[in-house]
Design a protein around this nucleic acid. Structure first.
Lengths: 262, 262
DNA sequence: ACGCATTTGTTCGTATGTATT
DNA sequence: TAATACATACGAACAAATGCG
Protein backbone atom coordinates (compact mmCIF):
# COMPACT_ATOMS: atom_id res chain seq x y z
CA UNK A 1 0.00 0.00 0.00
CA UNK A 2 1.44 3.39 -0.96
CA UNK A 3 2.22 5.95 1.67
CA UNK A 4 0.08 9.03 1.35
CA UNK A 5 1.56 11.67 -0.93
CA UNK A 6 0.05 14.72 0.72
CA UNK A 7 -0.77 14.98 4.37
CA UNK A 8 -3.77 12.70 4.08
CA UNK A 9 -4.46 9.51 2.18
CA UNK A 10 -7.28 9.64 -0.36
CA UNK A 11 -9.50 7.55 1.87
CA UNK A 12 -8.74 9.54 4.96
CA UNK A 13 -9.51 12.69 2.96
CA UNK A 14 -12.80 11.20 1.85
CA UNK A 15 -13.76 10.21 5.35
CA UNK A 16 -12.44 13.38 6.92
CA UNK A 17 -14.43 16.09 5.19
CA UNK A 18 -18.16 15.75 4.96
CA UNK A 19 -19.20 19.14 3.61
CA UNK A 20 -16.76 20.54 1.05
CA UNK A 21 -17.41 20.26 -2.66
CA UNK A 22 -14.57 17.92 -3.73
CA UNK A 23 -15.06 15.62 -0.77
CA UNK A 24 -12.90 13.05 -2.52
CA UNK A 25 -10.11 13.28 -4.98
CA UNK A 26 -8.37 10.34 -6.57
CA UNK A 27 -4.71 9.84 -5.92
CA UNK A 28 -3.58 10.94 -9.37
CA UNK A 29 -5.42 14.24 -8.96
CA UNK A 30 -3.67 14.86 -5.67
CA UNK A 31 -0.38 14.21 -7.41
CA UNK A 32 -1.45 16.59 -10.14
CA UNK A 33 -2.26 19.27 -7.59
CA UNK A 34 1.18 18.85 -6.04
CA UNK A 35 2.84 19.13 -9.42
CA UNK A 36 0.84 22.23 -10.30
CA UNK A 37 1.93 23.79 -7.04
CA UNK A 38 5.53 23.02 -7.90
CA UNK A 39 5.06 24.69 -11.26
CA UNK A 40 3.47 27.68 -9.60
CA UNK A 41 6.29 27.90 -7.10
CA UNK A 42 8.79 27.89 -9.94
CA UNK A 43 10.50 24.69 -8.90
CA UNK A 44 11.07 24.02 -12.59
CA UNK A 45 11.46 26.85 -15.06
CA UNK A 46 9.47 27.06 -18.29
CA UNK A 47 11.15 24.93 -20.93
CA UNK A 48 12.93 22.87 -18.30
CA UNK A 49 12.40 19.14 -17.83
CA UNK A 50 10.59 17.94 -14.75
CA UNK A 51 11.81 14.76 -13.00
CA UNK A 52 11.12 11.49 -14.75
CA UNK A 53 7.96 9.55 -14.07
CA UNK A 54 9.85 6.93 -12.12
CA UNK A 55 11.55 9.51 -9.96
CA UNK A 56 8.29 11.27 -9.21
CA UNK A 57 6.66 7.95 -8.45
CA UNK A 58 9.41 7.19 -5.96
CA UNK A 59 9.20 10.66 -4.46
CA UNK A 60 5.45 10.46 -3.93
CA UNK A 61 5.44 6.75 -3.11
CA UNK A 62 2.92 5.89 -5.78
CA UNK A 63 3.13 3.79 -8.90
CA UNK A 64 4.46 5.10 -12.18
CA UNK A 65 1.01 4.71 -13.71
CA UNK A 66 -0.50 7.11 -11.22
CA UNK A 67 2.12 9.75 -11.92
CA UNK A 68 1.57 9.12 -15.60
CA UNK A 69 -2.12 9.84 -15.36
CA UNK A 70 -1.47 13.07 -13.48
CA UNK A 71 1.02 14.15 -16.13
CA UNK A 72 -1.38 13.12 -18.89
CA UNK A 73 -3.95 15.55 -17.60
CA UNK A 74 -1.42 18.31 -17.19
CA UNK A 75 -0.25 17.76 -20.75
CA UNK A 76 -3.88 17.97 -21.88
CA UNK A 77 -4.11 21.25 -19.95
CA UNK A 78 -1.08 22.56 -21.82
CA UNK A 79 0.89 22.84 -18.62
CA UNK A 80 3.44 20.24 -19.64
CA UNK A 81 4.77 18.87 -22.91
CA UNK A 82 5.82 15.24 -23.20
CA UNK A 83 8.64 14.20 -25.49
CA UNK A 84 9.32 10.55 -25.91
CA UNK A 85 12.83 9.55 -25.04
CA UNK A 86 13.65 13.00 -23.68
CA UNK A 87 11.39 13.76 -20.80
CA UNK A 88 8.47 15.94 -19.80
CA UNK A 89 8.93 19.68 -20.02
CA UNK A 90 7.26 22.74 -18.58
CA UNK A 91 5.20 24.31 -21.34
CA UNK A 92 6.35 27.59 -22.79
CA UNK A 93 5.01 30.31 -25.03
CA UNK A 94 8.21 30.05 -27.02
CA UNK A 95 7.88 26.77 -28.86
CA UNK A 96 7.15 26.55 -32.54
CA UNK A 97 3.74 24.93 -32.28
CA UNK A 98 2.68 27.07 -29.40
CA UNK A 99 4.46 30.21 -30.51
CA UNK A 100 1.29 32.16 -30.90
CA UNK A 101 -0.98 29.79 -29.07
CA UNK A 102 -3.46 32.50 -28.28
CA UNK A 103 -3.42 34.40 -31.56
CA UNK A 104 -6.15 33.13 -33.85
CA UNK A 105 -5.75 35.67 -36.60
CA UNK A 106 -5.02 34.22 -40.02
CA UNK A 107 -4.54 35.79 -43.42
CA UNK A 108 -7.33 34.95 -45.84
CA UNK A 109 -4.83 33.69 -48.41
CA UNK A 110 -3.40 31.30 -45.87
CA UNK A 111 0.04 32.89 -45.84
CA UNK A 112 1.63 32.44 -42.44
CA UNK A 113 3.87 35.48 -42.62
CA UNK A 114 4.44 36.71 -39.07
CA UNK A 115 3.06 40.12 -38.20
CA UNK A 116 5.30 43.05 -37.46
CA UNK A 117 4.97 44.78 -34.14
CA UNK A 118 4.92 48.50 -33.50
CA UNK A 119 4.82 49.62 -29.91
CA UNK A 120 2.72 52.73 -29.37
CA UNK A 121 3.25 53.24 -25.67
CA UNK A 122 3.76 51.58 -22.32
CA UNK A 123 2.71 53.46 -19.20
CA UNK A 124 2.13 52.88 -15.53
CA UNK A 125 -0.98 54.36 -13.96
CA UNK A 126 -3.81 53.68 -11.57
CA UNK A 127 -6.06 50.99 -12.95
CA UNK A 128 -9.33 52.33 -14.34
CA UNK A 129 -12.38 50.89 -12.62
CA UNK A 130 -13.19 48.42 -15.36
CA UNK A 131 -9.62 47.13 -15.51
CA UNK A 132 -9.38 46.87 -11.74
CA UNK A 133 -12.57 44.84 -11.65
CA UNK A 134 -11.42 42.44 -14.34
CA UNK A 135 -7.98 41.94 -12.82
CA UNK A 136 -9.25 41.82 -9.23
CA UNK A 137 -7.17 44.82 -8.19
CA UNK A 138 -7.85 47.19 -5.33
CA UNK A 139 -9.16 50.65 -6.12
CA UNK A 140 -6.33 52.86 -7.28
CA UNK A 141 -3.81 50.05 -7.53
CA UNK A 142 -1.10 50.35 -10.14
CA UNK A 143 -1.50 48.91 -13.61
CA UNK A 144 0.58 48.83 -16.76
CA UNK A 145 -0.97 49.74 -20.08
CA UNK A 146 0.59 48.64 -23.34
CA UNK A 147 -0.70 49.71 -26.70
CA UNK A 148 0.66 48.39 -29.92
CA UNK A 149 -0.08 47.66 -33.54
CA UNK A 150 0.44 44.46 -35.47
CA UNK A 151 1.06 45.01 -39.14
CA UNK A 152 1.03 42.75 -42.17
CA UNK A 153 3.00 43.20 -45.38
CA UNK A 154 0.34 43.42 -48.06
CA UNK A 155 1.40 44.08 -51.59
CA UNK A 156 4.71 45.38 -50.39
CA UNK A 157 3.24 47.89 -47.96
CA UNK A 158 2.85 47.46 -44.23
CA UNK A 159 -0.81 47.60 -43.30
CA UNK A 160 -2.01 47.74 -39.69
CA UNK A 161 -4.23 44.77 -38.87
CA UNK A 162 -4.48 44.68 -35.08
CA UNK A 163 -4.60 47.38 -32.44
CA UNK A 164 -3.97 45.89 -29.00
CA UNK A 165 -4.70 47.61 -25.71
CA UNK A 166 -3.18 45.50 -22.93
CA UNK A 167 -3.56 45.95 -19.17
CA UNK A 168 -1.44 44.19 -16.57
CA UNK A 169 -1.29 44.32 -12.76
CA UNK A 170 1.48 46.75 -11.86
CA UNK A 171 2.59 44.70 -8.87
CA UNK A 172 3.50 41.73 -11.04
CA UNK A 173 5.26 43.69 -13.74
CA UNK A 174 7.65 45.99 -11.94
CA UNK A 175 10.27 47.29 -14.31
CA UNK A 176 8.30 46.69 -17.46
CA UNK A 177 8.98 49.56 -19.80
CA UNK A 178 8.71 50.54 -23.41
CA UNK A 179 12.45 50.02 -23.79
CA UNK A 180 12.34 46.46 -22.52
CA UNK A 181 9.38 45.70 -24.74
CA UNK A 182 11.10 47.18 -27.75
CA UNK A 183 14.28 45.24 -27.22
CA UNK A 184 12.53 41.91 -26.67
CA UNK A 185 12.55 39.51 -29.61
CA UNK A 186 9.78 36.94 -29.60
CA UNK A 187 6.26 36.66 -28.30
CA UNK A 188 5.16 39.02 -25.54
CA UNK A 189 3.88 36.12 -23.44
CA UNK A 190 7.29 34.55 -23.66
CA UNK A 191 8.76 37.71 -22.21
CA UNK A 192 6.22 37.72 -19.41
CA UNK A 193 7.14 34.23 -18.29
CA UNK A 194 10.87 34.64 -18.79
CA UNK A 195 11.27 38.12 -17.28
CA UNK A 196 8.38 38.39 -14.85
CA UNK A 197 7.55 34.77 -14.03
CA UNK A 198 3.96 35.30 -15.05
CA UNK A 199 2.68 32.40 -17.11
CA UNK A 200 -0.49 32.73 -19.14
CA UNK A 201 -2.22 29.37 -18.93
CA UNK A 202 -5.65 29.97 -20.30
CA UNK A 203 -7.79 32.80 -21.61
CA UNK A 204 -11.39 33.70 -22.24
CA UNK A 205 -12.33 35.85 -25.17
CA UNK A 206 -15.45 37.79 -26.05
CA UNK A 207 -15.84 38.73 -29.67
CA UNK A 208 -18.12 41.28 -31.24
CA UNK A 209 -18.33 43.50 -34.28
CA UNK A 210 -17.98 47.21 -33.62
CA UNK A 211 -17.73 50.38 -35.67
CA UNK A 212 -14.36 52.12 -35.74
CA UNK A 213 -14.26 55.43 -33.90
CA UNK A 214 -12.06 58.24 -35.13
CA UNK A 215 -8.98 57.17 -33.14
CA UNK A 216 -9.24 53.50 -34.01
CA UNK A 217 -9.84 54.38 -37.65
CA UNK A 218 -6.72 56.50 -37.79
CA UNK A 219 -4.59 53.85 -36.13
CA UNK A 220 -5.81 51.03 -38.33
CA UNK A 221 -5.98 53.09 -41.51
CA UNK A 222 -9.69 52.49 -42.13
CA UNK A 223 -12.65 54.80 -42.53
CA UNK A 224 -14.44 55.92 -39.37
CA UNK A 225 -17.41 53.65 -38.81
CA UNK A 226 -15.77 50.75 -40.61
CA UNK A 227 -16.60 47.36 -39.05
CA UNK A 228 -13.88 45.98 -36.78
CA UNK A 229 -13.66 42.76 -34.84
CA UNK A 230 -13.35 43.49 -31.14
CA UNK A 231 -11.62 40.76 -29.15
CA UNK A 232 -11.70 41.20 -25.41
CA UNK A 233 -9.41 38.75 -23.70
CA UNK A 234 -8.99 37.92 -20.05
CA UNK A 235 -5.93 35.74 -19.43
CA UNK A 236 -5.38 33.59 -16.38
CA UNK A 237 -2.39 32.11 -14.63
CA UNK A 238 -2.26 29.27 -12.13
CA UNK A 239 -5.21 29.06 -9.81
CA UNK A 240 -7.40 30.87 -12.32
CA UNK A 241 -6.06 34.22 -11.25
CA UNK A 242 -6.65 36.87 -13.94
CA UNK A 243 -3.42 38.62 -14.90
CA UNK A 244 -4.12 40.31 -18.20
CA UNK A 245 -6.97 42.20 -19.76
CA UNK A 246 -6.56 42.85 -23.42
CA UNK A 247 -8.75 44.47 -25.97
CA UNK A 248 -7.82 43.87 -29.57
CA UNK A 249 -9.36 45.53 -32.58
CA UNK A 250 -8.88 43.46 -35.71
CA UNK A 251 -9.24 44.80 -39.21
CA UNK A 252 -10.70 41.76 -40.94
CA UNK A 253 -10.73 42.81 -44.57
CA UNK A 254 -7.91 40.44 -45.46
CA UNK A 255 -7.62 38.44 -42.25
CA UNK A 256 -10.01 36.41 -40.17
CA UNK A 257 -10.23 34.89 -36.73
CA UNK A 258 -10.25 31.14 -37.02
CA UNK A 259 -11.81 28.86 -34.51
CA UNK A 260 -12.13 25.12 -34.21
CA UNK A 261 -15.26 23.65 -32.69
CA UNK A 262 -14.94 20.16 -31.25
CA UNK B 1 -0.41 -12.65 -26.86
CA UNK B 2 -3.48 -11.01 -28.31
CA UNK B 3 -4.81 -12.00 -31.70
CA UNK B 4 -4.65 -9.19 -34.17
CA UNK B 5 -7.78 -7.05 -34.13
CA UNK B 6 -7.75 -6.00 -37.76
CA UNK B 7 -6.37 -8.05 -40.58
CA UNK B 8 -2.80 -7.39 -39.59
CA UNK B 9 -1.01 -7.18 -36.29
CA UNK B 10 0.64 -3.87 -35.44
CA UNK B 11 4.05 -5.31 -36.06
CA UNK B 12 3.08 -6.95 -39.31
CA UNK B 13 1.56 -3.65 -40.37
CA UNK B 14 4.74 -1.85 -39.47
CA UNK B 15 6.87 -4.33 -41.36
CA UNK B 16 4.46 -4.61 -44.26
CA UNK B 17 4.26 -1.04 -45.50
CA UNK B 18 7.43 0.87 -46.09
CA UNK B 19 6.10 3.99 -47.78
CA UNK B 20 2.78 5.16 -46.34
CA UNK B 21 2.60 7.98 -43.82
CA UNK B 22 1.33 6.17 -40.70
CA UNK B 23 3.58 3.16 -41.15
CA UNK B 24 2.81 2.10 -37.62
CA UNK B 25 -0.13 2.57 -35.37
CA UNK B 26 -0.39 1.37 -31.79
CA UNK B 27 -2.95 -1.22 -30.95
CA UNK B 28 -5.30 1.13 -29.15
CA UNK B 29 -5.42 3.39 -32.18
CA UNK B 30 -6.34 0.48 -34.39
CA UNK B 31 -9.13 -0.35 -31.96
CA UNK B 32 -10.18 3.28 -32.07
CA UNK B 33 -10.28 3.21 -35.86
CA UNK B 34 -12.48 0.11 -35.76
CA UNK B 35 -14.82 1.74 -33.27
CA UNK B 36 -15.04 4.90 -35.35
CA UNK B 37 -15.92 2.80 -38.37
CA UNK B 38 -18.67 1.14 -36.36
CA UNK B 39 -20.02 4.53 -35.39
CA UNK B 40 -19.86 5.64 -38.99
CA UNK B 41 -21.65 2.49 -40.13
CA UNK B 42 -24.38 3.18 -37.61
CA UNK B 43 -23.82 0.00 -35.61
CA UNK B 44 -24.86 1.97 -32.55
CA UNK B 45 -27.30 4.86 -32.78
CA UNK B 46 -26.58 8.28 -31.26
CA UNK B 47 -27.46 8.21 -27.59
CA UNK B 48 -27.19 4.43 -27.46
CA UNK B 49 -24.68 2.59 -25.29
CA UNK B 50 -21.82 0.80 -26.95
CA UNK B 51 -20.73 -2.60 -25.61
CA UNK B 52 -18.87 -2.59 -22.31
CA UNK B 53 -15.12 -2.33 -22.19
CA UNK B 54 -14.79 -5.96 -21.18
CA UNK B 55 -16.99 -7.13 -24.02
CA UNK B 56 -15.08 -5.06 -26.55
CA UNK B 57 -11.82 -6.34 -25.12
CA UNK B 58 -13.03 -9.90 -25.61
CA UNK B 59 -14.30 -9.16 -29.10
CA UNK B 60 -11.03 -7.64 -30.24
CA UNK B 61 -8.88 -10.01 -28.18
CA UNK B 62 -7.06 -7.23 -26.39
CA UNK B 63 -6.90 -6.17 -22.78
CA UNK B 64 -9.48 -3.93 -21.19
CA UNK B 65 -6.83 -1.27 -20.73
CA UNK B 66 -6.24 -1.05 -24.44
CA UNK B 67 -9.94 -0.65 -25.18
CA UNK B 68 -10.09 1.91 -22.42
CA UNK B 69 -7.38 4.00 -24.00
CA UNK B 70 -9.15 3.91 -27.36
CA UNK B 71 -12.39 4.99 -25.72
CA UNK B 72 -10.58 7.69 -23.76
CA UNK B 73 -9.44 9.30 -26.98
CA UNK B 74 -12.86 9.02 -28.54
CA UNK B 75 -14.40 10.64 -25.49
CA UNK B 76 -11.84 13.44 -25.79
CA UNK B 77 -12.90 13.77 -29.44
CA UNK B 78 -16.52 14.13 -28.34
CA UNK B 79 -17.48 10.99 -30.20
CA UNK B 80 -18.44 9.10 -27.06
CA UNK B 81 -19.61 10.02 -23.59
CA UNK B 82 -18.63 7.94 -20.57
CA UNK B 83 -20.94 7.55 -17.62
CA UNK B 84 -19.67 5.72 -14.62
CA UNK B 85 -21.83 2.85 -13.61
CA UNK B 86 -23.98 3.09 -16.74
CA UNK B 87 -21.81 2.62 -19.76
CA UNK B 88 -20.32 4.48 -22.69
CA UNK B 89 -22.71 6.22 -25.06
CA UNK B 90 -22.60 7.54 -28.58
CA UNK B 91 -22.43 11.32 -28.35
CA UNK B 92 -25.46 13.30 -29.40
CA UNK B 93 -26.34 16.89 -30.16
CA UNK B 94 -29.30 16.47 -27.83
CA UNK B 95 -27.74 16.34 -24.39
CA UNK B 96 -27.89 19.19 -21.96
CA UNK B 97 -24.19 20.00 -21.85
CA UNK B 98 -23.77 19.55 -25.55
CA UNK B 99 -27.16 20.94 -26.52
CA UNK B 100 -25.73 23.81 -28.46
CA UNK B 101 -22.20 22.57 -28.57
CA UNK B 102 -21.39 24.64 -31.62
CA UNK B 103 -23.24 27.83 -30.72
CA UNK B 104 -20.89 30.22 -28.94
CA UNK B 105 -23.23 33.16 -28.77
CA UNK B 106 -23.91 34.45 -25.26
CA UNK B 107 -25.98 37.32 -23.94
CA UNK B 108 -23.86 40.07 -22.40
CA UNK B 109 -25.84 39.91 -19.19
CA UNK B 110 -25.13 36.22 -18.89
CA UNK B 111 -28.74 35.17 -19.18
CA UNK B 112 -28.96 31.77 -20.76
CA UNK B 113 -32.42 32.19 -22.21
CA UNK B 114 -32.67 30.01 -25.31
CA UNK B 115 -33.13 31.79 -28.61
CA UNK B 116 -36.33 31.53 -30.60
CA UNK B 117 -36.13 30.25 -34.13
CA UNK B 118 -37.90 31.64 -37.14
CA UNK B 119 -37.52 29.74 -40.39
CA UNK B 120 -37.34 31.98 -43.43
CA UNK B 121 -37.13 29.39 -46.16
CA UNK B 122 -35.82 25.97 -47.11
CA UNK B 123 -35.21 25.27 -50.77
CA UNK B 124 -33.51 22.73 -52.99
CA UNK B 125 -31.39 23.99 -55.85
CA UNK B 126 -28.15 23.47 -57.68
CA UNK B 127 -25.23 24.31 -55.46
CA UNK B 128 -23.62 27.66 -56.27
CA UNK B 129 -19.97 27.37 -57.17
CA UNK B 130 -18.69 28.50 -53.82
CA UNK B 131 -20.93 26.09 -51.92
CA UNK B 132 -20.07 23.21 -54.23
CA UNK B 133 -16.40 23.83 -53.67
CA UNK B 134 -16.71 23.94 -49.90
CA UNK B 135 -18.86 20.81 -49.72
CA UNK B 136 -16.88 18.92 -52.36
CA UNK B 137 -19.92 18.57 -54.64
CA UNK B 138 -19.92 18.07 -58.38
CA UNK B 139 -20.83 20.99 -60.59
CA UNK B 140 -24.58 21.40 -60.64
CA UNK B 141 -25.23 18.88 -57.88
CA UNK B 142 -28.25 19.44 -55.67
CA UNK B 143 -28.01 21.35 -52.43
CA UNK B 144 -30.45 22.43 -49.74
CA UNK B 145 -30.47 25.99 -48.52
CA UNK B 146 -31.98 26.91 -45.18
CA UNK B 147 -32.31 30.45 -43.98
CA UNK B 148 -33.52 31.35 -40.55
CA UNK B 149 -33.41 33.89 -37.77
CA UNK B 150 -32.62 33.41 -34.11
CA UNK B 151 -34.34 35.90 -31.86
CA UNK B 152 -33.86 36.93 -28.26
CA UNK B 153 -36.48 38.34 -25.92
CA UNK B 154 -35.08 41.73 -24.95
CA UNK B 155 -37.16 43.94 -22.76
CA UNK B 156 -40.27 42.02 -23.65
CA UNK B 157 -39.79 42.30 -27.40
CA UNK B 158 -38.31 39.69 -29.72
CA UNK B 159 -35.20 41.04 -31.32
CA UNK B 160 -33.41 39.22 -34.16
CA UNK B 161 -29.84 38.37 -33.19
CA UNK B 162 -28.65 35.84 -35.75
CA UNK B 163 -29.32 35.37 -39.43
CA UNK B 164 -28.20 31.93 -40.56
CA UNK B 165 -27.70 30.84 -44.15
CA UNK B 166 -27.15 27.09 -44.20
CA UNK B 167 -26.13 24.89 -47.13
CA UNK B 168 -26.30 21.10 -47.13
CA UNK B 169 -25.55 18.42 -49.74
CA UNK B 170 -28.88 17.50 -51.38
CA UNK B 171 -27.96 13.85 -51.66
CA UNK B 172 -27.67 13.44 -47.90
CA UNK B 173 -30.79 15.37 -47.01
CA UNK B 174 -33.51 13.96 -49.25
CA UNK B 175 -36.91 14.84 -47.90
CA UNK B 176 -35.74 17.80 -45.85
CA UNK B 177 -38.40 20.48 -46.13
CA UNK B 178 -39.59 23.62 -44.43
CA UNK B 179 -42.45 21.67 -42.90
CA UNK B 180 -40.17 19.11 -41.30
CA UNK B 181 -37.91 21.84 -40.00
CA UNK B 182 -40.85 23.77 -38.60
CA UNK B 183 -42.25 20.80 -36.79
CA UNK B 184 -38.96 19.71 -35.28
CA UNK B 185 -38.42 20.58 -31.64
CA UNK B 186 -34.83 20.77 -30.53
CA UNK B 187 -31.48 21.58 -32.09
CA UNK B 188 -31.15 21.36 -35.86
CA UNK B 189 -28.08 19.17 -35.56
CA UNK B 190 -30.07 16.76 -33.46
CA UNK B 191 -32.57 16.51 -36.29
CA UNK B 192 -29.82 15.90 -38.80
CA UNK B 193 -28.43 12.96 -36.88
CA UNK B 194 -31.83 11.53 -35.93
CA UNK B 195 -33.61 11.95 -39.25
CA UNK B 196 -30.81 11.91 -41.79
CA UNK B 197 -28.03 10.02 -40.05
CA UNK B 198 -25.65 12.89 -40.61
CA UNK B 199 -23.56 13.59 -37.53
CA UNK B 200 -21.66 16.83 -37.18
CA UNK B 201 -18.45 15.95 -35.40
CA UNK B 202 -16.30 19.00 -35.75
CA UNK B 203 -16.39 22.40 -37.38
CA UNK B 204 -14.07 25.18 -38.47
CA UNK B 205 -15.17 28.75 -38.23
CA UNK B 206 -13.88 31.95 -39.76
CA UNK B 207 -14.96 35.14 -38.05
CA UNK B 208 -14.82 38.67 -39.32
CA UNK B 209 -16.57 41.97 -38.86
CA UNK B 210 -18.65 43.14 -41.82
CA UNK B 211 -21.04 45.98 -42.57
CA UNK B 212 -24.71 45.11 -42.91
CA UNK B 213 -26.07 45.40 -46.43
CA UNK B 214 -29.66 46.46 -47.04
CA UNK B 215 -31.10 42.94 -46.87
CA UNK B 216 -29.17 41.89 -43.78
CA UNK B 217 -30.03 45.15 -42.08
CA UNK B 218 -33.74 44.66 -42.70
CA UNK B 219 -33.66 41.07 -41.43
CA UNK B 220 -31.72 41.89 -38.29
CA UNK B 221 -33.44 45.19 -37.64
CA UNK B 222 -30.28 47.27 -37.71
CA UNK B 223 -29.18 50.24 -39.78
CA UNK B 224 -27.54 49.54 -43.13
CA UNK B 225 -23.78 49.62 -42.65
CA UNK B 226 -24.03 48.57 -39.02
CA UNK B 227 -21.19 46.27 -37.92
CA UNK B 228 -22.12 42.58 -37.81
CA UNK B 229 -20.12 39.55 -36.82
CA UNK B 230 -19.85 37.16 -39.76
CA UNK B 231 -19.31 33.53 -38.77
CA UNK B 232 -18.56 31.20 -41.64
CA UNK B 233 -18.73 27.61 -40.51
CA UNK B 234 -17.72 24.44 -42.29
CA UNK B 235 -18.90 21.33 -40.45
CA UNK B 236 -17.47 17.88 -40.85
CA UNK B 237 -18.70 14.39 -40.26
CA UNK B 238 -16.68 11.17 -39.90
CA UNK B 239 -13.60 11.00 -42.05
CA UNK B 240 -13.40 14.78 -42.17
CA UNK B 241 -16.00 14.97 -44.91
CA UNK B 242 -17.56 18.44 -45.11
CA UNK B 243 -21.35 18.26 -44.87
CA UNK B 244 -22.48 21.73 -44.00
CA UNK B 245 -21.55 25.26 -44.99
CA UNK B 246 -23.14 27.91 -42.86
CA UNK B 247 -22.83 31.63 -42.80
CA UNK B 248 -24.17 33.34 -39.74
CA UNK B 249 -24.50 37.07 -39.24
CA UNK B 250 -24.58 37.98 -35.56
CA UNK B 251 -25.86 41.25 -34.21
CA UNK B 252 -23.49 41.76 -31.28
CA UNK B 253 -24.92 44.81 -29.56
CA UNK B 254 -26.19 42.77 -26.62
CA UNK B 255 -24.58 39.43 -27.33
CA UNK B 256 -21.05 38.25 -27.92
CA UNK B 257 -19.21 35.23 -29.23
CA UNK B 258 -17.32 33.59 -26.42
CA UNK B 259 -14.21 31.56 -26.91
CA UNK B 260 -11.92 29.70 -24.61
CA UNK B 261 -8.20 29.55 -25.35
CA UNK B 262 -6.29 26.65 -23.84
C1' DA C 1 29.35 3.60 -36.01
C1' DC C 2 27.59 1.05 -32.35
C1' DG C 3 25.68 -0.03 -28.30
C1' DC C 4 23.90 1.28 -23.84
C1' DA C 5 21.26 3.82 -20.52
C1' DT C 6 17.40 6.76 -19.87
C1' DT C 7 12.71 8.26 -20.65
C1' DT C 8 8.33 8.14 -22.41
C1' DG C 9 4.89 5.07 -24.97
C1' DT C 10 2.27 0.80 -25.29
C1' DT C 11 0.20 -3.39 -23.55
C1' DC C 12 -0.90 -6.79 -20.54
C1' DG C 13 -2.90 -8.52 -16.11
C1' DT C 14 -5.13 -8.02 -11.60
C1' DA C 15 -7.49 -6.03 -7.79
C1' DT C 16 -10.40 -2.80 -5.76
C1' DG C 17 -13.43 1.45 -5.53
C1' DT C 18 -17.60 3.95 -6.99
C1' DA C 19 -21.94 4.67 -9.38
C1' DT C 20 -26.10 2.84 -11.33
C1' DT C 21 -29.85 -0.25 -11.77
C1' DT D 1 -28.60 -6.70 -2.00
C1' DA D 2 -26.51 -8.20 -6.10
C1' DA D 3 -24.93 -7.51 -10.66
C1' DT D 4 -22.88 -4.57 -13.99
C1' DA D 5 -19.96 -0.90 -15.80
C1' DC D 6 -16.76 2.51 -15.54
C1' DA D 7 -12.76 4.55 -12.47
C1' DT D 8 -8.61 4.07 -9.97
C1' DA D 9 -4.33 1.91 -8.72
C1' DC D 10 -0.81 -1.37 -8.74
C1' DG D 11 2.89 -4.06 -11.08
C1' DA D 12 5.48 -5.81 -14.95
C1' DA D 13 7.39 -6.06 -19.43
C1' DC D 14 8.73 -4.56 -23.84
C1' DA D 15 8.89 -0.89 -27.74
C1' DA D 16 10.47 3.44 -29.55
C1' DA D 17 13.04 7.70 -29.30
C1' DT D 18 16.86 10.14 -27.63
C1' DG D 19 21.45 11.14 -26.20
C1' DC D 20 25.93 9.84 -24.74
C1' DG D 21 30.15 7.37 -24.46
Amino acid sequence: MPADPATASPHAAAAGSAETAPAFSPLYRQIKALLVRSLEAGDWAPGEAIPSELELAARFRVSQGTVRKAIDEMAADNLLVRRQGKGTFVATHAEAQTQYRFLRLTADDGSAAPLQRRLLDCRRMRAPAEVARALALERGEAAVQIRRLLLAAEGGRLQPVVFDDVWLPGSLFRGLSAERLESWRGPMYRMFEAEFSVRMIRAEEKLRAVAANADDAALLDVAPGAPLLSVERLSFTYGDRPVELRRGLYHTAHHHYRNELG
